[in-house]
Design a protein around this nucleic acid. Structure first.
Length: 733
DNA sequence: CCTTTATTTTTTTTT
DNA sequence: AAAATAAAGG
């Protein structure tokens, strides 16, 4: 043990409770840490403490975080704090770590070396295909539901063999689809998110020697955001900790927001029971938020039942009340936010201190429009991720095929994008043969070509496609990752395909594809720790890049260090903090979300989500809601969220816009006729030829403005206003 | 077989 | 509103 002087820089900055956690004796520890109580800080200091005071080598430490963002932040902070060599330290998400283990031990896990990760979009496509193959009605068996079922089973650690479908017909079909899907994955060398965890769990179960190796290596396993751990992750943790390892879990039951992914409120209690004896430490002092913000958070979360119970307090200032803005519509709301941010910046504070949080990704669009119009720099986290864009997925499909020709998911995607004369008819033949013989699409294609079963035209097209892939593989074998990507984009014709089109969207796609080449270039230059290790562990750059693309959906594409307003969902805001926070869209049906109110316990989870949002704020917090909002294409009126009512009114203050001078903002909207609102829906009109009718809907402006009119017996017609000579008429009695 | 247009469906959160 | 699918036209 070093003497205390060495440790003082490490421990001095901590409060007693934090120090207790950091210096907890060997054995299992559970830290119940409220929002803003220095959770991450404790975790990082704990690792440094283990290394400095207890002589624990870096390679004996495994730290699990919830997002990739959190993982890289932890590495960074650890490096700053201790300047110790942390090379052998494993930090990552459950999925990231499981993936790493599977890459290392692909043989023992019975996976092909080039196995690829299936994202949820690929998964949905695969399931749609399977449902079609079984000639089930897609209306009755929506892929999304099947996806949900399968993922849930995997999260519970269940294979088809371990599920008893019983004699319920519905359950049996679900079971069969799961079985089919699993076969598809195996045949194609594909692994979905849930599979990463389940497969690793089984790998450890089947290979005791391997497990023993890792148990011996990882003396300390630390888990952040423990409350959001699901069953399979929990099993994993227990397995890895074994009999000798020490688990150090940090969590807050009030911040459990991934119940829909299998996290259970009982997690923390379960940990105490299973890992007993557990040293319990509570962190209740909040260093982040003002007194008023904290009071609001406490009051809100108090409406939940079955909590472990914990009340945050602060010795800091009371701060300003929470501002509440009732907007007329979502544009008005965005304008309010814009204005407040401008005022904030006018005081000399950076944009980067401002965060706008919302319930669903779709809400970001209006905010982006408005912020952009006001020329405020912003950055959107999550949402349509870079690697999820259609054109990027197209390009990646080619890369995946290069890595593994049996990847059916990639095959389906690449084979006719850009169109090269391999239509659904020919493809169906390939699929049929593949199904009958249990082959991959690639192999089935080879067979069909060898047997000459296809028409000359289709056969040639297909042959050219296979040759293209083979040629690319050969020619690029010696090239760098970026040169390889460049070649693929050129030779596949993808780049030309989008270039030929004139639309603005297509231009964007071309730019995105070009960006992909520079992304690969950047990737090979300053690769992250994970990819560096992956490569050191014998992965080809291509494989490492593809895995990275699937697991870390390109959140770090744009540089983090720029001074921009931060836009993100409440879910992605977990673990972060900002001086100025806007919580917008606080309306019934949106937040709490309609979908959540229909599930058991859904409302409480929404409330916890709101709690997470509130506790992100350090100095100033604003709530906003809109009377009317365009949601899924239709105008929706809604009441302010119940969460607003649940906060004592003394903590909240109504705010108004300072500049009310100009007319209320009107979204670029839907007036029906070419001359302003000549006709409205439900209006009675008369037409020289068709007679009397009622306006059903309308679209377009100026010369192309049209209305849809129901003329009763004459039927429903679309009429161009410029020609139709429609007259407004009084309703018939 | 490809492209364009019309129709229908689906609307949360993420690894 | 956007995306997926179906139908029609070339």
């Amino acid at each position: 043990m070093h003497d205390l002087d060495d440790l003082s820089p490490l421990l001095d900055a901590l409060n007693p409770a934090q120090r207790e956690a950091v210096c907890a004796p060997p054995g299992h520890t559970l830290v119940l840490a409220g929002a803003g109580s220095g959770k991450t800080r404790v975790l990082i200091h704990r690792i440094a403490y283990l290394m400095q005071a207890c002589q624990v080598p870096a390679h004996a430490v495994l730290a699990v975080t919830f997002t990739n963002k959190a993982a890289s932040e932890m590495r960074e902070r650890l490096h700053k704090l201790s300047r110790l060599p942390i090379g052998g330290l494993w930090v990552g998400t459950f999925h990231g770590l499981a993936h790493r283990l599977l890459r290392l031990h692909w043989q023992e896990a019975q996976l092909p070396q080039g196995f690829q990760i299936l994202d949820s979009d690929d998964q949905a496509r695969a399931l749609r295909r399977i449902i079609k193959n079984r000639s089930l009605d897609e209306k009755l068996w929506p892929a999304a539901k099947m996806q949900w079922y399968i993922n849930q089973k995997k999260d519970e650690g269940l294979r088809p063999a371990q599920i008893d479908p019983g004699d319920n017909r519905h359950a049996q079909i679900l079971w069969e689809i799961y079985e089919d899907y699993q076969q598809f994955c195996t045949r194609s060398g594909l692994v979905d998110f849930g599979e990463l965890l389940l497969r690793t769990h089984e790998l450890f179960k089947q290979q005791p020697a391997l497990l023993a190796h890792y148990q011996q290596r990882f003396q300390h396993v630390l888990v952040d955001e423990f409350q959001d751990t699901n069953h399979i992750q929990y099993l994993w943790l227990r397995q890895l900790t074994g009999l000798q390892g020490a688990a150090f879990a940090v969590g807050d039951d009030d911040q459990l927001i991934y119940g829909w992914r299998g996290a259970k409120p009982g997690n923390l209690q379960q940990f105490q029971a299973d890992f007993a004896p557990v040293q319990l430490v509570r962190l209740e002092q909040n260093y982040r938020s003002t007194g008023l913000i904290l009071a609001a958070a406490n009051a809100l979360i108090h409406h939940n039942t079955a909590r472990l119970g914990k009340t945050l307090w602060t010795s800091g200032a009371e701060g300003a009340p929470i501002g509440l803005y009732g907007a007329r519509n979502e544009y008005d709301e965005a304008r309010f936010i814009t204005e407040r941010i401008q005022a904030w910046v006018a005081q000399g504070c950076p944009y980067a201190e401002c965060a706008v949080l919302y319930r669903s990704n779709a809400q970001s669009r209006v905010l982006e429009e408005t912020l952009g119009a006001a020329k405020l720099p912003y950055r959107v986290y999550g949402g349509q991720r870079y690697f999820e864009r259609a054109e990027i997925k197209d390009a990646l499909a080619y890369l995946r095929l290069l890595a593994n020709s049996d990847d059916d998911s990639a095959f389906e995607r690449a084979v006719n994008t850009p169109t090269r004369g391999i239509g659904d008819t020919s493809l169906e033949q390939v699929r049929q043969l593949a199904r009958k013989q249990g082959l991959s699409l690639w192999r089935a294609s080879q067979h069909l070509l060898a047997d000459n079963t296809l028409s000359a035209r289709a056969g040639n097209a297909l042959r050219r496609f296979l040759e293209l892939i083979l040629r690319l593989r050969q020619e690029t074998a010696a090239l760098s990752l970026s040169a390889l990507t460049d070649q693929v984009l050129q030779q596949s014709g993808l780049l030309d395909f989008y270039r030929q089109k004139k639309g603005e969207k297509e231009q964007m796609r071309v730019e995105n594809l070009e960006e992909l080449v520079s992304a690969t270039k950047q990737y090979q230059d300053d690769a992250t720790d994970l990819s560096a290790t992956l490569r050191a562990e014998g992965q080809t750059p291509l494989l490492a890049f593809l895995s990275n693309a699937a697991l870390d959906a390109g959140d770090e594409q744009t540089p983090t260090n720029q001074d921009t307003v931060q836009l993100m969902t409440l879910h992605s805001a977990k673990g972060l903090e900002f001086p100025l926070v806007f919580l917008c869209g606080l309306e019934e049906q949106l937040f709490p979300h309609r979908m959540a109110t229909q599930t058991e316990g859904g409302l409480e989870e929404e409330r916890r989500l709101c709690y997470v949002g509130i506790t992100r704020a350090m100095r100033q917090l604003y709530f906003s809601h809109a009377e009317v909002r365009r949601l899924h294409g239709t105008e929706t009126y809604s009441r302010p969220s119940r969460f607003i009512q649940e906060i004592p009114s003394g903590l909240v203050e109504d705010v108004r816009l300072k500049t009310v001078a100009h007319a209320p903002y009107r979204p670029p909207a839907a007036t029906l006729a070419h001359s302003t609102a000549e006709f409205h829906i439900g209006q009675h009109v008369s037409h020289p030829k068709f007679g009397e009718g009622v306006v059903l809907s309308g679209e377009g402006q100026g010369a192309s403005a049209r209305v849809e009119v129901n003329f009763g017996r004459q039927g429903v017609k679309w009429l161009v206003l410029a020609y139709a000579n429609l007259q407004a008429s009084p309703p018939r009695s």
